[in-house]
């Protein structure tokens, strides 16, 4: 009996091994290996074709002084920060509304989720038309001087247009997560609160919000990460312009690394970007974990 069971355990172990090895090998081959290769390329002056030389840390030194790279970081962070805050505020308000006692609740929830299922590129193209033709025409009618020309062709305003499109899509996702968070708040918490006369903003601040902090942190992390990696919207709306004012980090790596002959240099940029993403995610998670523990 004992012999049989240990034989069974061995068979189980072997089967698990046979499953795991190819899966891990596949993951290594198409995730870790290119990561390592990218890291190695970052120490070369590889153009993407032909021969190349080792240049040591020169790419990394050049990154610091490169104004185009610096601008792309500035733009990406400005975009991600403003986008994350706007998205979270609006979707929290929206979720509170969609979670209250309203008519046609499920239909409304369904409608507000639509932007999330649509592809970013095509949505970008549709909004591009709105910013280029519809909005300026409306502004001219209304006599609003600052909006009477296309937002997308102004270096100062193009990023706002991208924030609007990014939020339009991201709000859908965050709202649904907040709604599922609000549904975890037990009704008797509110009942106890109303006995103490807690209403309105106070009710939200001291009763609702502390209870949905886990969902708040999920949304912050997901939202920030997605915004930092913005690509489709840039591709559809501005292609990094006007005069490189809306070049996101992903777009710059794609544009200059793939066709601009900066394979090695952009590999260094990509590696720094990777470290930044990891650092931000780890930071956000430790901060929110600590907050949750305090509760």
């Amino acid at each position: 009996m004992k012999g049989k069971s240990s034989k069974g355990a061995q068979e189980r172990k072997l089967t698990f091994l046979i499953i795991t090895i190819p899966v891990v090998a596949l993951f290594f081959c198409f995730n870790t290996l290119p990561l390592i290769r990218g890291f190695i390329y970052s120490f070369t002056n590889f153009k993407g074709y032909g021969s190349y030389d080792w240049v040591g840390l020169r790419n990394y030194r050049d990154l610091i002084g490169d104004s185009r790279v610096g601008n792309s970081y500035l733009f990406t962070f400005k975009y991600a920060l403003v986008g994350t805050i706007l998205t979270n505020v609006i979707s929290l308000v929206l979720a509170l509304g969609l979670n209250s006692k309203i008519r046609a609740k499920s239909a409304l929830r369904g409608i507000y989720f639509i932007p999330n299922v649509l592809g970013g590129l095509v949505i970008g193209y549709i909004f591009s038309f709105i910013f280029t033709y519809v909005l300026p025409t409306l502004a001219q009618r209304a006599g609003i001087e600052s909006l009477s020309s296309s937002m997308l062709s102004s270096t100062g305003k193009a990023w706002i247009a991208i924030v609007i499109v990014g939020c339009w899509q991201a709000i859908a996702m965050n709202t649904i997560i907040y709604i599922s968070g609000l549904q975890t708040v037990p009704e008797d918490v509110y009942e106890a609160g109303s006995l103490d006369g807690v209403t309105g903003w106070k009710k939200f601040r001291y009763l609702t919000f502390p209870l949905i902090i886990p969902f708040f942190s999920i949304n912050m992390v997901l939202c920030m990460k997605n915004f930092l990696m913005v690509f489709d919207q840039i591709m559809a709306l501005t292609k990094g312009g006007p005069s490189q004012s809306t070049e996101s980090i992903s777009y710059l790596i794609y544009n200059n690394g793939m066709s601009g002959g900066q394979f090695g240099f952009q590999s260094a940029n990509a590696f720094v970007f990777f470290v930044v993403i990891v650092a931000i995610s780890v930071f956000q998670m430790t901060v929110t974990n600590r907050k949750e523990e305090q509760l």
């Binding site: 891990v24 993951f27 198409f30 995730n31 870790t32 290996l33 290119p34 990561l35 290769r37 990218g38 390329y41 993407g48 990696m229 690509f231 980090i249 992903s250 790596i253 794609y254 690394g257 793939m258 394979f263 952009q266 590999s267 990509a270 590696f271 970007f273 990777f274 993403i277 990891v278 995610s281």
Partner: peptide
């Protein structure tokens, strides 16, 4: 090891993957 792959942005894998 595999789960931490979530943090690797496509931008860094893109160029080596095109070659590969």
């Amino acid at each position: 090891y595999i789960v931490s792959g979530m943090f690797v942005p496509f931008a860094i894998l893109m160029m080596p993957l095109v070659k590969q």
